[in-house]
Deep mutational scan, measured.
Amino acid sequence: LTVQLGNLEWHFDNPEQALKMAEELAKRYQLKVEIDNGTLKFK
């Protein structure tokens, strides 16, 4: 699973870790998370 923020990307083997990080980033920057083809992206 990949977490993508702008041109930064983090790759996780563990989806739970990816979701946890995505939630933290979304909270911190007040963004919405969307999943696009196995990639978590922020809007």
Rank of each mutant, 00 (worst) to 15 (best):
Lys43Cys: 14
Gly38Ile: 04
Glu9Pro: 03
Leu25Arg: 00
Ile35Val: 10
Arg28Thr: 05
Leu19Asp: 01
Phe12Thr: 02
Lys20Ala: 13
Asn7Gln: 12
Leu19Arg: 09
Ala22Arg: 02
Gln4Phe: 07
Gln4Asn: 05
Pro15Met: 14
Gln17Ile: 11
Tyr29Asn: 02
Trp10Val: 05
Asn14Met: 07
Leu31Glu: 00
Glu9Tyr: 14
Glu34Pro: 01
Arg28Ala: 05
Phe12Met: 03
Leu40Lys: 00
Glu9Gln: 14
Glu23Asn: 13
Glu16Ala: 13
Lys20Gly: 05
Glu16Thr: 11
Trp10Glu: 00
Tyr29Arg: 02
Ala26Met: 08
Asp13Thr: 13
Phe12Lys: 01
Glu34Ser: 09
Leu8Thr: 08
His11Gln: 06
Gly6Ser: 04
Ala22Asn: 00
Lys43Asn: 07
Thr39Pro: 01
Gln4Arg: 12
Leu8Pro: 00
Met21Gly: 01
Asp13Pro: 10
Leu19Pro: 00
Phe42Ser: 01
Gly38Ala: 06
Leu25Ser: 00
Leu31Met: 08
Asn37His: 09
Lys41Asp: 01
Met21Gln: 03
Arg28Cys: 13
Phe12Asn: 00
Leu1Asp: 02
Glu34Lys: 05
Gly38Leu: 06
Phe42Arg: 01
Asp13Val: 10
Ala22Gly: 04
Lys20Tyr: 07
Trp10His: 02
Thr2Ala: 06
Leu8Lys: 14
Phe12Val: 03
Val33Ile: 15
Thr2Gly: 03
Leu5Ala: 03
Pro15Val: 13
Ala18Asn: 00
Gly6Cys: 15
Pro15Ala: 12
Glu16Tyr: 13
Ile35Lys: 07
Gln30Pro: 02
Arg28Trp: 07
Leu1Val: 09
Lys43Tyr: 15
Phe42Leu: 15
Glu34Asp: 07
Trp10Met: 06
Asp36Arg: 10
Asn7Lys: 14
Asp36Ser: 13
Glu23Tyr: 15
Val3Gly: 02
Trp10Pro: 00
Pro15Leu: 13
Ala22Tyr: 04
Ala18Arg: 01
Leu8Glu: 06
Ala18Tyr: 04
His11Phe: 11
Gln30Phe: 11
Leu1Met: 13
His11Leu: 05
Ile35Phe: 14
Asp13Ser: 12
Gly6Tyr: 07
Asp13Ile: 09
Leu5Gly: 02
Asp13Lys: 12
Glu23Leu: 14
Asn14Gln: 07
Lys32Glu: 10
Gly38Lys: 07
Trp10Asn: 01
Asn37Ile: 04
Glu16Ser: 10
Asp36Tyr: 11
Glu23Asp: 09
Val33Lys: 00
Val3Tyr: 03
Lys43Asp: 04
Ile35Trp: 14
Tyr29Trp: 09
Gln17Val: 11
Tyr29Cys: 12
Lys27Cys: 11
Ala26Leu: 06
Asn14Phe: 08
Asn7Thr: 12
Leu31Thr: 02
Thr39Ile: 15
Glu34Gln: 09
Pro15Gln: 09
Gln30Tyr: 10
Gln30Trp: 10
Lys27Glu: 08
Gly6Arg: 05
Thr2Val: 11
Glu24Arg: 15
Ala26Gln: 04
Leu5Pro: 01
Lys32Pro: 03
Gln4Trp: 07
Glu24His: 13
Met21His: 09
Gln4Ser: 08
Phe12Trp: 04
Glu9Arg: 15
Ala18Gly: 07
Leu1Tyr: 13
Val3Pro: 02
Glu24Lys: 14
Asp36Asn: 11
Glu24Gly: 11
Gln30Cys: 15
Gln4Met: 12
Asn37Gln: 09
Leu19Glu: 04
Met21Thr: 04
Leu1His: 06
Leu5Arg: 01
Leu40Gly: 00
Leu25Gly: 00
Ile35Cys: 11
Asn7Gly: 12
Lys27Arg: 14
His11Cys: 10
Ile35Thr: 05
Glu34Gly: 03
Tyr29His: 04
Lys43Ala: 10
Met21Val: 09
Phe42Glu: 01
Ala26Trp: 09
Phe12Asp: 00
Gln17Lys: 11
Thr2His: 06
Trp10Gly: 00
His11Gly: 02
Lys20Pro: 01
Ala18Leu: 06
Val3Asn: 02
Gln30Thr: 05
Glu34Phe: 15
Phe12Glu: 01
Ala22Cys: 04
Glu23Gln: 13
Ile35Ala: 06
Ala18Gln: 01
Glu9His: 12
Gly6Ala: 06
Lys27Thr: 09
Glu24Asp: 11
Ala22Trp: 05
Gln4Lys: 13
Leu1Lys: 03
Val3Lys: 01
Val33Leu: 12
Asn14Val: 08
Glu34Cys: 15
Glu24Phe: 15
His11Asp: 03
Leu1Trp: 15
Met21Ser: 03
Thr39Gly: 03
Trp10Gln: 02
Asp13Cys: 10
Gly38Ser: 06
Tyr29Ala: 02
Arg28Tyr: 09
Phe42Asp: 00
Lys27Ile: 09
Pro15Phe: 14
Tyr29Gln: 01
Val33Thr: 03
Tyr29Glu: 00
Ala22His: 01
Val3Thr: 02
Leu31Lys: 01
Lys20His: 08
Met21Trp: 15
Pro15Trp: 15
Thr39Trp: 10
Lys43Thr: 13
Ile35Leu: 13
Leu5Gln: 02
Glu34Ala: 06
Gln4Ala: 07
Leu19Lys: 07
Pro15His: 10
Tyr29Ser: 01
Gly6Thr: 03
Pro15Ser: 09
Met21Cys: 15
Val33His: 03
Trp10Lys: 02
Lys27Ala: 11
Gln17Gly: 06
Lys27Phe: 10
Leu25Pro: 00
Leu40Tyr: 12
Glu23Lys: 12
Lys20Leu: 10
Phe12Ile: 03
Met21Leu: 14
Leu25Asn: 00
Ala26Asp: 01
Phe42Val: 14
Gln4Asp: 03
Phe12Ser: 01
His11Asn: 05
Thr2Lys: 11
Met21Arg: 04
Lys32Arg: 11
Asn7Phe: 13
Gln4Glu: 05
Lys41Ala: 04
Lys32Ala: 10
Phe42Lys: 01
Gly6Pro: 03
Lys27Gln: 10
Val33Ser: 02
Lys43Arg: 14
Met21Asp: 02
Ala18Val: 05
Ile35His: 08
Glu16Phe: 13
Lys41Arg: 14
Thr39Lys: 11
Glu24Leu: 15
Lys41Tyr: 10
Ala26Cys: 10
Ala18Phe: 06
Gly6Lys: 04
